[in-house]
């Protein structure tokens, strides 16, 4: 398994962030939640490894 990386890895941070916000523009809260859920599932599939996904979940937990 490749390890979860928490160091900078996004090639165009400002653009990617803007894309994310743009995707949610004009959506209701429920539609946004649904979009996020689909996005997470698609990214989870891209990650593939349960172990890596759990590491990401851990890193995302509120603390």
């Amino acid at each position: 398994m490749t390890r979860l990386s928490l160091s900078p890895g996004i090639d165009a941070p400002d653009e990617l962030y803007a894309d994310l916000l743009a995707a949610h523009e004009g959506l209701s809260e429920a539609e946004s939640a649904a979009l996020n859920a689909r996005l997470i599932l698609i990214l989870a599939n891209q990650i593939g490894s349960r172990e890596l996904f759990r590491a990401a979940l851990d890193a995302a937990r509120p603390r």
């Binding site: 429920a30 939640a33 649904a34 859920a37 689909r38 997470i40 599932l41 698609i42 599939n45």
Partner: peptide, 23 residues
């Protein structure tokens, strides 16, 4: 509510994306 959101997201994706079907 969130468990329904994820459930519906899986079902929604399952039509176009084969990866979602095993879920």
């Amino acid at each position: 509510a969130m468990s329904r959101t994820f459930r519906d997201a899986v079902l929604d994706l399952s039509e176009r994306c084969e990866f979602a079907r095993p879920l």
